[in-house]
Design a protein around this nucleic acid. Structure first.
Lengths: 159, 159
DNA sequence: ATTCGTAACGTTATATTATAACAATTTCAA
DNA sequence: TTGAAATTGTTATAATATAACGTTACGAAT
């Protein structure tokens, strides 16, 4: 799998999800943390699309026979998944997206298509470096750089 | 006033606020939009510090003799102020900060000090360009790039 | 100066997103 | 197997943001 990309419309998404879940197992095993049932379910729901998913959307999708779990359950799973780099938060939308690539933990740039809702993940070191340089000039020590770009993806541009 | 910077601790903040309000008048006059009393009050409150300010903090600060305006009033003013570039939204904090510089409308990078809460504003074209280049490679047409960097400011680093 | 259309604001209600606090359960290792 | 820590359940509530609709203020055109 590529280390960065925008999701192609019509790609084999089932493989995509399978790969995501297998990867998740690997990541958690290596880190010595537990990918529990709840966490797996939350990741599966978010991974079903490349779109931004709200916490309450996840909640709804996890509903079984009218029985829904509490919001806190989803938020706890999300916090865990973000801590291991399997999910990205999209602040400007108050939403989340699964990390479908292998850039675990390193800074990512998110591209958010306003037309189709898809979220692309980039890992451009030049962007990160430019931010690092700019921050350093101001004497600012970076903890985490969040880059979220709204716009129109290639597919929606041509369509 | 510099076009970009991190607020110096101990700077003359009163001048800072005065300058902000004068600038706001100018911007609005030029744009042919109205800096009404409510909008002015909201901007004044936000401009009082270089920190991130929540909408409900503004609400509280605007309270006169126990009488507070409705949240929507603040949000409407914030939407207006953002539309003319006098206020920046800080998505990762669900908060807002006054724009103390003169980079109206062009993309800005926000530096958020986790120690003292101060927010710095940069306008580094290299950052914007790096994002532009990266997005272009992915065929993505940028609408707006949000860059929010958390960390520790120069003053807090040495303190 | 009047009036008329639009922009701004007031008012009430509610939607959406996120967390607190504490009890019960599960897990894994000693 | 038992005890500490991690996870989850349960209930309640906090924090952030918007909808809908009526009223007022403003400014341009007559």
């Amino acid at each position: 799998m590529k280390s960065q990309s925008f999701p192609k419309p019509g790609h084999d998404h089932e493989r995509c999800v399978n790969s995501l879940m297998v990867h998740a197992e690997t990541v958690c095993r290596k880190a010595g943390v537990r990918l529990t049932e709840q966490r797996r379910r939350v990741l599966e729901v978010i991974g079903r699309s490349h779109k931004a998913t709200g916490a309450y959307d996840v909640l709804e999708a996890m509903e079984i026979k009218g029985r829904r779990t509490a919001p806190i359950t989803v938020y706890r799973a999300l916090d865990f998944l973000m801590s291991v780099g399997l999910v990205h938060r999209i602040s400007c939308l108050n939403a989340f997206t699964a990390c479908h690539y292998r850039h675990e933990q390193s800074p990512v740039q998110l591209l958010i298509c306003k037309a189709c809702g898809a979220v692309g993940e980039l890992e451009e070191h030049k962007v990160t470096q430019a931010i690092q340089t700019a921050a350093a000039k101001a004497g600012f020590a970076i903890d985490e750089p969040f880059v979220e770009v709204t716009g129109k993806c290639a597919h929606c541009c041509t369509a």
